[in-house]
Design a protein around this nucleic acid. Sequence first.
DNA 1: GCGGCTTCAGTGACTTCGTCACACAATCGC
DNA 2: GCGATTGTGTGACGAAGTCACTGAAGCCGC
Lengths: 214, 214
Amino acid sequence: MHPSDHPAFDGLEPELRARVDADSRMLDLPAGETVFRPGDPCRGLPLVLEGSIRVQMTGCSGHEIVLYRIGDADVCTLSIGCLMANRGYRAEAIVEMPTRATALPWPLFDELMAGSASFRRRIISAYGERLDTLMMLVEEVAFGRMDTRLAEWLNAHAQDTPLRITHHDLAVELGTAREVVSRLLKEFERAGRIKLARGRIDMLAPIPIGGSGA
Amino acid sequence: MHPSDHPAFDGLEPELRARVDADSRMLDLPAGETVFRPGDPCRGLPLVLEGSIRVQMTGCSGHEIVLYRIGDADVCTLSIGCLMANRGYRAEAIVEMPTRATALPWPLFDELMAGSASFRRRIISAYGERLDTLMMLVEEVAFGRMDTRLAEWLNAHAQDTPLRITHHDLAVELGTAREVVSRLLKEFERAGRIKLARGRIDMLAPIPIGGSGA
DNA sequence: GCGGCTTCAGTGACTTCGTCACACAATCGC
DNA sequence: GCGATTGTGTGACGAAGTCACTGAAGCCGC
């Protein structure tokens, strides 16, 4: 597998493709590894071929919230901004599933933006989508009810039952406090929708949205 | 004043500059005008020369929150994403101060991205900053205390005293309910920091952050 | 000026969510 | 096993959002 196998390079002329493979190297990131922390300088543009990297941020209060994930065929849009503004990252990125990625050096990135319409298109649309998901996150966090958001999260992950996740991690996922998650989960359990165990949630039935779950 | 006076075109070769002026026209937007609404298609890339446009979104509950503003020399990053994904806007944009802007047609945008390193740099860093402000907004909304956020907003606008703003508009600014704003303002008034009147707030003294304001 | 209408602001009662301070259970390392 | 660590459950309380009002301030037509 080569760096240029990333879909962002689809449609690239063979010459530029060869440059990509020559100038960037493949990385295999094991789950749990931290890719960057707040304050870290940015050295190049990470491109994920396959895997999943979680991007989250920590508030001054010490609370954390998951902002989004960089998955198969994605680009780390965050890095471009850091690179341009010449400042460190504000968020942190943690490998969730073993990830195969590559880092494109900045000069080559610029060259590709100039030389390839398809690459350009890809990068810009990645940015647009990121902006979009962040806007929707703002709306959810500002106006969404916690029970609804938790129910939706659980329903969305129901196919992976039993879920292996702690209440704390779920709280980070939703940007709330662990106690809130514990309480709501207990309610869902009392309503017979789920079954709780240490570090594990069995989904028994889809959780109705909006109702009190009974 | 020409479209190409926008700083995004600084350093552009005269030839491309002329293209910009030929293909895009100047717009004078009066305060209060809606530039786009949710669902509207995107026709080109708006560039603000001077003025201020507020971008806000409305939740399913009918609540609104201000996401950010497009000010002097800014670019409407949102539009690029909509253009690329070929979908409508999700947010709405309202002119706050009389604004002089121009709209760059998509083909020309693409051409400039290919042909001008400085334009490219400008656009990309505009995106990076937008991402950044949105991430900070998420953090604030998720973890910030309302009294602190309101106090910070008021302190930041203290130089414009008396502020001409209704409690409702302040609530949209912070993404909360009107009643919450009313109550907190009343507290600040009781603490002697501000003076309230219909549609108006006089700043008497900076509001201490973190304390109960007394 | 004087009603009537609309927009703003203030407030009480109640719910939901976040915070703090615990108790206690499950798991891990040795 | 046994202590340390990590994860969960819960009560009490404060902060923030919701609901249902009241009444005041400005606007308009006459």
